[in-house]
Amino acid sequence: MPKIAADGKYLTVLNLFSTDAPEKQERLLGAMREIVDAAAYEGWISSTVHSGQDKPGTANFIQWRSTEDLETRYAGEEFKHRTLPLFGEMTTSIRLLQNEVAFTQQVPSGYGTTVISPDRNDHTVIEIFGVEEKDQEDLIDALGPSQEWLTEVGGYRSHTVLRGLRGRGLDGKFVVSYAQWDSKEAYDAFRTLPEEQRSAARRKTDARVAALATSHDWNTYRVVHTRSAGQ
């Protein structure tokens, strides 16, 4: 099962597809499973498919050996003339985001590393933050190391902060937060907690993130399929 580590070993690609109907989401998931199960690309490490929960859509968390390997895939005839047109028929937006892992944190009782797998029951939250280039590192700190207090929040399991390197379908610099929670109920309780009931540490980091981010988009997901090279 794929593991996330802030060691710079892999290029992390997050492909986000939004759609406007549950049936289109199911078609997307079927097409993604087919591609993942047939994957044999040079430099491809793993792919993990996520099914949108709060809003229709899908996410694919992919690990590659290098940017060069990924760009070779993008330049291929199959990707340009079959994969992209196929997804274009079923989606309202496509964002192909290249990242590096900048930070990862787990609760002390966790695995000691961040694991993504359909065998787990994680309620996964993916947030995309737009940011000015000069503020990107500050936003990474605000979303990552400055949120150590999250380990004391009920239902929290882990979160990973990704430094956006380049993207298709998204302009400018960005930062991604990939978080795992025990359940939808635990996350919703955290997200909707009135500000006056939030801890001082949370209010401080919330204000810092709001001041640094130029845009914010999110959805929740369930991991439904994964495969790694050699399987």
Rank of each mutant, 00 (worst) to 15 (best):
D182H: 03
S215R: 13
G144R: 03
A207V: 02
E132S: 09
V209Y: 08
K204Y: 08
Y187C: 10
S177P: 00
S215D: 10
S215T: 14
E148L: 09
E196F: 12
A207P: 04
S158N: 04
S215N: 05
A186F: 05
T205D: 09
S183F: 09
A189Q: 15
A201H: 03
L139P: 06
D171N: 07
E137M: 08
D135E: 02
A179R: 03
D188T: 15
I140P: 04
R168D: 09
S158F: 02
R157N: 09
K204Q: 14
S158M: 01
W218L: 14
D135R: 08
H216F: 15
G172F: 00
K173M: 08
L212E: 13
S158V: 01
L170Q: 07
A213H: 07
Y178L: 12
L212D: 12
D188G: 07
T160R: 06
G130V: 03
T151C: 01
R157C: 00
V131D: 14
D138P: 00
A142L: 11
L150C: 04
Q147S: 10
D188W: 15
D188Y: 10
H216C: 08
R157E: 04
Q136M: 08
S146P: 01
T220P: 06
Q180H: 14
D182E: 15
N219R: 06
Q180N: 10
D138N: 09
L143I: 03
R208A: 13
K134P: 02
A207S: 14
F174I: 00
D138V: 07
E185D: 06
D217A: 14
L212W: 11
E132Y: 05
H216N: 08
E196L: 10
S146Y: 01
L139S: 10
D141V: 11
R166W: 13
D135T: 02
Y156W: 11
E185T: 14
I128Q: 12
V209M: 14
A142Q: 10
D135M: 06
T192Q: 13
R208L: 15
R191D: 06
P145F: 00
P145N: 00
F129T: 07
A142T: 10
L170A: 11
I140W: 00
E137N: 05
T205L: 09
A213T: 13
K134Q: 15
A179G: 14
L150E: 03
L193D: 05
T160F: 05
R157H: 01
E195L: 13
H159I: 03
L193E: 14
E137F: 05
E137Q: 12
R191S: 09
R208M: 13
Y187T: 05
D206G: 01
V176G: 12
L150P: 01
R203I: 06
E196A: 13
T192C: 05
N219W: 03
L162V: 10
R198E: 12
W218A: 11
T192P: 06
G172H: 08
R163S: 10
I128M: 13
E148Q: 09
D141E: 14
L212N: 05
E132P: 01
V175C: 03
A210E: 15
A179N: 07
L165K: 11
R168C: 02
P145D: 10
Q136K: 12
A210N: 04
I140C: 03
Q147C: 09
E195D: 14
